[in-house]
Write a protein that binds this DNA or RNA. Sequence first.
DNA 1: TCCGATCCGTGCGAAAACGCATGTATGGAT
DNA 2: ATCCATACATGCGTTTTCGCACGGATCGGA
Lengths: 290, 290
Amino acid sequence: MDMTWDDLRTVMALVRHGSLAGAGAALSVNYTTIARRIRRAEEASGEVLFERLSDGYRPTDAALLIAEHAEQMEQAEHGLMRRLKGAETHLSGILTITAPQLLIASFLSPVLDQFTRTHPDVELRVLATNELLDLSRREADLAIRVSRAPGDALTGLRLLYQDSASFANADWAARIARDPQTQINWVAYDSFPDVPKGTNPDYPNQKVRFRFDDMVAMVGAAQAGLGIVRMPMFLGRTNAGLQQVPVLAPQPYPEIWVVGHPDVWPSAKLRAFRGVLIAHCKAHKALFVA
Amino acid sequence: MDMTWDDLRTVMALVRHGSLAGAGAALSVNYTTIARRIRRAEEASGEVLFERLSDGYRPTDAALLIAEHAEQMEQAEHGLMRRLKGAETHLSGILTITAPQLLIASFLSPVLDQFTRTHPDVELRVLATNELLDLSRREADLAIRVSRAPGDALTGLRLLYQDSASFANADWAARIARDPQTQINWVAYDSFPDVPKGTNPDYPNQKVRFRFDDMVAMVGAAQAGLGIVRMPMFLGRTNAGLQQVPVLAPQPYPEIWVVGHPDVWPSAKLRAFRGVLIAHCKAHKALFVA
DNA sequence: TCCGATCCGTGCGAAAACGCATGTATGGAT
DNA sequence: ATCCATACATGCGTTTTCGCACGGATCGGA
């Protein structure tokens, strides 16, 4: 009847991923190890935990029960790891941060550079993604986000206010300046698929010509001359070949925040990183507003 | 930074027991294994978890933090094990019950006997103790208790009402019958150290002569003629050499209950055991009351 | 129809974890 | 002062666990 805690965790991983290989990858062990542990767990509990099907393992009710409770255990473990990290006072080891790709590419690189120079024993792991990683589950220690609020039960600091405006390449900028009546093609964001509101009435012929789901691509599209793009000012200013065009006047854009879980927030590494980050933001705040 | 769940459990055990040997016994492993796992955990976490002192291991703050969260994990594990046990439908494996020694010795043995005969594949573990074991922590599956309520968050059934009365050996019984004025020596229970209230005024010379902390010993004392004892009627009636004496009239005594955690209560094994138990109690209820 | 991608089971040798025996230090009781 | 009980550290041989390589089964697309 006695089962190892690690076997409970293994059952949970297999329930989650549905295959030995997936569970093995999640736990960083060979998949045969998963199979063996599952067999052990079945012997220990006296219950059949999975049906072996040709396309994977299907959990029985008993396995689902185990998985449910193992998730509670996992939550406790995450809480522990956060608290341990938060109590760290040494400036060494791994620090994981996440930020949108574009912010890293166009603005944050100097922060990363300076931080690793100042604290050479800290191994900085950077997750460049627009996804909102789960800081409770320790997917990252610190997140730099573009949004109006830190959200959830997270601690946060506002780093920057920013405005957006319309940008295009030199050809477009010249053409628009020459003839306000010209046909103006917008490259729009998937989630805001229309011509932005509040455009300058001097330019009557506007039309959405492309829709993209990714801002990186949109910057490229603007550079290549596919049309004009509404983007944060810092993006237009830092990417070569782009010029601001007067089609859409600057307007407030979601702020930039740094957020973290309150458990890990006090850690020395996080504190140090925030220091460098905040200094850099203060020094360049003019880049972000009109 | 990654730590095995079993290592977290090991840290918790060492914090609890204070010594490698104690923790090893609790986890049924050699104490050297505890030492190795602690070293592993310290390497994985990068924290010193224990001070090695001459009289044992003293936990650091980090270890206490781990232990705290590991206890949450343990609670989840206990909840799981209860649910798994409660869902069992087969009549095999281990069933653990607890009851006061005297109830087992004087009354319950036939229940145990019949149950194991009827269900030969169930291994019955009997914890004969007056201590209130923690059914949430699976110290036992089912408890037979002498008290007015099932307590806590437990499910329970009342098995029997019972009365108490005064008992003594044949010598004392004869002497009391011959001369009501004789000096009557009480053997009292430690927690009720006085002559019981409501004694028969026909016997004026009563005095507490001994105090015991254990009812088993008190039965023996009564048999040996040390004095008269207030005890449940079934005890006086089932133990050889004892007779009821009219010094203290029968009066209600705490009821006998069977209690269990609601999670495990539905299990087939528990259900079967309760069946045998209840039948036996019904058949012999007259033994318990005046 | 064939090929490739995913599954999983099995057997073997390497690596890790474990139990046991031995030796040392400390503190309390006789 | 001596003896004994408790508590750890260390080294060695054994057991257990693990990763890897190989083979079989299934499914879907070219």
